[in-house]
Design a protein around this nucleic acid. Structure first.
Lengths: 218, 218
DNA sequence: AATAATTTTTAGATTTGTCTAAATATTTAG
DNA sequence: CTAAATATTTAGACAAATCTAAAAATTATT
């Protein structure tokens, strides 16, 4: 399916926002796409009709699977072009973003397939961000436990090391499971505990012992 | 100065038309940009305000110097991208037009400067058409179409004027492409058709309409 | 030269993506 | 728990680029 440049920019921005923020609001998005919130509302309705976002008035929204797939295609193009601009044309990595913002909207699939091969199917762009492959898969950074996970980044619980009943009981209480999305707000030097924030619930404190056993990917 | 994609397409089309036609009419232009004549009138008024065309209602029009300069910049981008697609990404010369139609609107000047150097500052694109240099200058090849090419001399196909899909289909059928070597055996007064002979295949007849659109160097 | 055919322009409408201002809903704070 | 602050949506407008239908101008034909 083909989308307008404006639609693509919204989809891409929502994708980036929902990785770094647990909730994507219209205001947040309006800043990201540099428009007024009222315009965002208009566009959300259109994207919903096209089944790209899950959206109900006055509620926060997310990309559908189709929306994510679309976002990854755009990001793939963006990052491949950035790689090209740096590796072949000799740009510095901090000069290429705006040009790639334009190039990412070129529609030809065959072009991207060939460009990818020409560049040697790179997995990371010049900024170190992963380049989705043709199936939308990105090389994930290794999983880290909550002691190692960087602060303030949305992370997804990917595994639990200690699977004792006591641990599972605790996870159940906090409503943490594989796939749960959370963010580390703060780490306390004093006892190694961490404050985590999940959607819809107040922040919670986990002891160092617990934190060491919960693994995430970002 | 920056122009919209629509404006650029009009400018480029007017340029091509005023090279191949003595007078450029709204109807002719409307076919070239694939819109209705009424829309062309609207756009001409806008382009006139921007000093890109000399236009008075009900009269034929021409590009201003500024318009020509703009057209050459767009054509330069188009042809450099075509060269890139063929020489670096391995596309066939008859597959690149539509992609270059999109790429020609990428705005960065620095990108084109670097692309030009990366490609070795080529003077001709894969169709044999000259690539304007950064100052808008074009190298003219002494090329003649098959009506003008002398009889019984080996000639090399250097460019195709009409690059419509229909024309490309026909060329593909006859296995004619840029670089093909051929000889004019005979010209028929009756309908202007020409008999050509290429290596390894029987002689073939081309209509006047086709012959006019195939250019050669000898 | 008068009329017919064609071309060009005008007038009014449509779509996309945006805006401002006002209305409405939600969240935060006293 | 209200009230204030903030966020979101609606309503109405606009610019760009297009369209159709009709009017006006030009060109061609008899």
């Amino acid at each position: 399916m083909k989308f307008t440049e404006a639609e693509e920019n919204y989809i891409k921005s929502i994708y980036h926002l929902q990785i770094t923020h647990e909730k994507v609001s219209a205001t947040l998005l309006s800043a990201a796409v540099n428009t007024r919130a009222a315009s965002v509302t208009d566009m959300l309705k259109k994207l919903q009709l096209k089944k790209l976002v899950n959206y109900k008035p006055y509620q926060s929204f997310t990309l559908t699977d189709k929306g994510v797939k679309t976002a990854l295609e755009i990001i793939r193009k963006h990052r491949l072009w950035e790689f090209f601009l740096v590796s072949k044309l000799g740009f510095n990595w901090d000069e290429v973003h705006d040009i790639a913002e334009e190039l990412e909207h070129i529609s030809s699939k065959e072009l991207i397939t060939r460009l990818d091969n020409y560049l040697g199917n790179p997995s990371f762009d010049p900024h170190g961000d992963p380049i989705p492959d043709k199936n939308g898969r990105i090389k994930q950074l290794k999983q880290k436990n909550l002691i190692e996970t960087p602060l303030k980044k949305m992370a997804t619980v990917s595994s639990i090391r200690d699977q004792s009943n006591e641990m599972l009981e605790l996870l159940k209480h906090y409503n943490i499971s594989i796939g749960t999305r959370l963010r580390i707000n703060k780490r306390f030097e004093f006892d190694g505990s961490v404050e985590i924030k999940m959607e819809k619930v107040p922040a919670a404190i986990l002891s160092e012992q617990v934190a060491k056993n919960i693994f995430c990917t970002i």
